[in-house]
Simulated scan of single mutants.
Amino acid sequence: MKCILVFACLSIALCLAAPPPEAEIIRQESDVNVDSFSYNFETSDGTRQEQHGSLKNLGPEEVALQVAGSYSFVDQDGQTHAINYVADENGFQPQGEDIPQI
């Protein structure tokens, strides 16, 4: 009887210690041009990301890359976390419920 109990406890411990299954890409698209790009993907674990960018003319001989996008993921408790962002000549500007507002 003790042997069965020990075996059951070891089996449960091994199941709990097993790594989660690897996520697979279920959707992926990209479009890359000389002066712009866009891409997006989604994985089987609920992770999503999309981004697009283009060159912005700042002056006669000055350009900057401006990028906008978002990403989200599902944590171990099943809660989805999402971030939207812009990155341009003013820096990286993320927004989301998980980011404290100053």
Rank of each mutant, 00 (worst) to 15 (best):
S11L: 03
Q49N: 08
D75W: 15
G69A: 06
D98A: 12
T47E: 09
P21G: 02
L10F: 02
G69H: 02
Q51I: 11
D98F: 09
A68T: 02
P100T: 06
A17S: 11
V74I: 15
F73Q: 05
A87N: 07
D77W: 06
D45L: 10
A17I: 00
S36L: 07
V67H: 05
Q66I: 07
Y71W: 15
S36H: 11
S11H: 01
Q76L: 12
L14I: 03
N90E: 09
A82T: 14
Q66R: 00
V67I: 15
S44E: 11
V86G: 06
F92H: 08
S54C: 00
P94A: 11
A82S: 08
L10K: 01
F41C: 05
C15N: 07
G69E: 02
A64I: 05
Q28N: 15
V63N: 12
E22Y: 00
F73L: 12
S36Y: 06
E42V: 12
Y71A: 10
Y39E: 00
A64N: 04
N33R: 15
R48P: 00
S30T: 08
G53A: 11
L14C: 09
R27T: 13
M1D: 13
A82L: 12
V74C: 13
N57I: 03
V6Q: 04
L58Q: 04
I25S: 00
S36G: 10
E42P: 00
A23F: 12
V63K: 14
T47G: 01
D31L: 10
L16Y: 01
Q51H: 09
N90Q: 12
H81S: 03
A13V: 04
M1W: 11
V63L: 13
Y71D: 06
G96Y: 00
V63A: 11
I4V: 15
L55R: 14
V34C: 09
P100F: 06
A17W: 01
H81E: 10
Q49R: 15
Q49S: 05
N90H: 14
S44R: 10
R48D: 04
A23R: 10
L5Y: 09
Q66K: 03
D45H: 03
S38W: 04
R48T: 13
N40G: 04
P20K: 07
F41Q: 02
G69F: 05
C15R: 01
G59A: 08
Y39S: 04
E50R: 07
D88H: 12
G96Q: 00
D77T: 11
I83V: 15
A8G: 14
Y71T: 10
A17D: 03
E50Y: 07
V6F: 05
P60M: 13
A8C: 14
V86F: 00
V74S: 14
S30M: 06
D35P: 00
P19W: 07
V34Y: 10
S30C: 01
V34K: 13
G53H: 02
E50S: 11
Q101F: 00
S54G: 08
D75T: 13
L55N: 09
D31M: 09
Y85A: 07
S38T: 07
A13W: 02
E62D: 10
